[in-house]
């Protein structure tokens, strides 16, 4: 029994039994706390995944509108402006910064978009023709990119939460399935070892007592024989040592228990 299962390498002493008991208690508290944390995070996580799902769908629509506004530009400008745009891009007007949000002790970064208005690479694009469409298209795409940034925040939160939840769950499971059983095992082991020791002790004392008794009997017999040799009829002496032995036995029992 005590050999089966995993247990901590401790000496089965009363002191370590105490340690183990407090460890078990700690593990149980930790387990319930982590479990609650994991639940809170999972709740949040589910919320986020739901929002990601929604946002991804929304993105589909927003990007479609944006793509359509680009089609309008192509229509109005009457040609391809792609290359020119690519070449005149110099400084990002649209940028993001990152801030943190604390969710149940986990720092989730969130992107926040901002524009640097002084950077305007395309102010003159479509000057002769279609400029208004170009500007409108820029606005539409800016809005679309904002949606994308929002989605990216959610997604980053998702990735991080996913990681965190995995770690927390791993801990919960480790406590639940490894640490607690192992501590319990150890306690059981210590208990059984201590019981074993008790039984051994008991048995040993019993043996000692028996030996003593036997020795006494032998000694008595020898004495009786001696006496018999000297005085053939004297049986009252047998009771004397026995009464003494009973006293001795009581004393021994006190020691044991």
């Amino acid at each position: 029994m005590s050999g089966a299962g995993d247990r901590e390498p401790v000496f089965p002493t009363r002191q370590s039994l105490g340690t183990m008991k407090s460890k078990l208690k700690g593990a149980e508290t930790g387990h319930s706390l982590l479990k609650r944390k994991s639940e809170a995070l999972t709740k949040r996580f589910r919320e986020i995944t739901k929002r990601i799902d929604e946002a991804k769908r929304k993105m589909g629509r927003v990007m479609q509108i944006a793509a359509f506004s680009l089609a309008e530009v192509t229509y109005a400008v009457g040609g391809d402006i792609g290359y020119q745009i690519q070449e005149s891009a110099k400084n990002a007007r649209f940028r993001v910064r990152t801030k943190q949000e604390n969710v149940s002790g986990v720092f989730l970064p969130a992107f926040e978009s901002y524009t640097k208005d002084e950077n305007n690479d395309f102010g003159l694009t479509g000057l002769g023709k279609g400029g208004q469409q170009v500007q409108r298209c820029r606005e539409t795409y800016s809005r679309a990119v904002e949606t994308l940034v929002e989605l990216a925040s959610l997604q980053t939160a998702f990735v991080i939460l996913d990681e965190v939840i995995k770690v927390v769950n791993r801990r919960v499971n480790a406590i639940e399935h490894v640490i607690i059983p192992r501590t319990e095992n150890t306690i059981k082991y210590i208990n059984s070892e201590l019981d074993e020791l008790d039984r051994e002790e008991f048995y040993r004392l019993k043996k000692v007592k028996n030996n003593k008794q036997r020795d006494n009997e032998i000694a008595e017999k020898a004495e009786v024989e001696k006496k018999g040799k000297r005085q053939d009829s004297d049986k009252e002496n047998e009771d004397g040592p026995e009464a003494k032995d009973v006293l001795g036995e009581e004393e021994d029992q006190d020691v044991i228990f």
Binding site: A66, K90, A92, R95, V96
Partner: peptide
């Protein structure tokens, strides 16, 4: 601070118009 994009010509053009190009 920046966004990056790998896309077809139209997508890139549009996103650059939004001003992410750097």
């Amino acid at each position: 601070h920046f966004l990056a994009v790998i896309g077809d010509e139209d997508s890139v053009t549009g996103l650059l118009l939004a001003g992410i190009g750097h």
